[in-house]
Design a protein around this nucleic acid. Structure first.
Lengths: 192, 192
DNA sequence: ATGTCAACTTTACACCGTGTCAAGATTCCC
DNA sequence: GGGAATCTTGACACGGTGTAAAGTTGACAT
């Protein structure tokens, strides 16, 4: 759906790199310069900044093959193993999309499209959470007094990008610590 | 420090109301109109949008007396009771500052002042978390393998505004459910 | 070789929100 | 009545997004 056009590809690649580099200003003109084209040519490919960012996330998803990664967690036998695998798969994906998500998150307020795009991505994560919780419930492992819905919400909140940012960037946790602690937390919160 | 000037007060009150009402656009002109003065007069009192927002949060803190609320949690005898009281005190404060925090959060990217202001507030919350954790440790109740620092980080992340937003706004939890579940979560995560 | 089509360039402009500036008006106080 | 604070009106600069239009370049077909 997106592979053909070479300039489009270059735009996505350089924009990605730019976003991930984290150097603050990522205006349309910056993306254009990075791709070696004029600002207007950028608008020839993407009608708005929001759509460009959305396209970048999709591009990243494709290159990093998030689907395949999350699929692995589905292969685990026990619900508990599945939970751990999911936490690890998603948790290790977060740092790879940090740049894009920061930009997309920052324009949530004020841009409905960005809001919808982010909500969509998060919904996908939520489904992963729900699947893990269901597997847990099937094993009879879910803590009593905890509905599947509530357990899913809880896990989803625990695994939010915002939480990752706080722990890894603000508090200085290593990625390893983060994963280990989140697995532990998920177990403690959800298991009987 | 801020009580005297009546227009200043009116600005803060109406701005607060406006922010809490949630109707999207909160530009300087909106604040001015709400206060019944011209946009320029607003700049006579606050040099920038960021400083206005910061002043509003301080104003809210003062009116709602957050300090007194958090102080109550310090009165609890056992570490566990203290943890519950802190979760409840802060957790019930979040919805009251939802509007201001949304605005302040939204301008984090790009405005160093807003960033600093928000970080400062969060630091205060963090200290509350740290105090609760220390009380827990003193009781010998802290889960083994969990340093005080890590426990504090974890609790702090759990009680973030972002997490509240996700659970209460996105997932539709009631405030009651939120508090109850966060108390349960904090216990499960931190206690031995 | 010519025509044409797509991708790109340059230049210019409209719009919005923030923040600045300057020239009055109003009100209160001495 | 004089003066200072406070507020008003109106204008403008700046930065960033998005639009519009006219011109350049290169590939490819006939």
């Amino acid at each position: 759906m997106s592979s053909e056009n070479p300039t489009r590809r270059k735009i996505l690649d350089t924009a990605w790199k730019l976003l991930e580099a984290g150097g603050r200003p990522t205006r349309m003109s910056d993306f254009a310069r990075a791709a070696g084209i004029s600002r207007q040519a950028l608008y020839l490919h993407f009608p708005s900044r929001a759509e460009l960012l959305v396209a970048v996330t999709r591009h990243v998803d494709q290159v990093k093959d998030i689907d395949a990664r999350l699929a692995e967690s589905r292969a685990a036998d026990s619900g508990e193993a599945r939970l751990a695998a999911f936490v690890s798969a998603w948790g290790n994906y977060i740092p790879e999309i940090r740049g894009v998500s920061r930009a997309l998150l920052a324009m949530q307020e004020g841009d409905a499209e960005a809001r919808a795009a982010w909500a969509g991505r998060m919904e996908a994560v939520r489904q992963g959470c729900a699947a893990a919780v269901t597997a847990l419930a099937r094993d009879g492992q879910l803590a009593e007094g905890l509905s599947e819905k509530r357990a899913t919400d809880l896990l989803w909140a625990l695994l939010s990008v915002e939480t990752w940012v706080r722990l890894c960037e603000t508090c200085g946790w290593s990625q390893q610590d983060y994963i280990a602690e989140m697995q532990r937390a998920a177990r403690r919160l959800l298991l009987a």
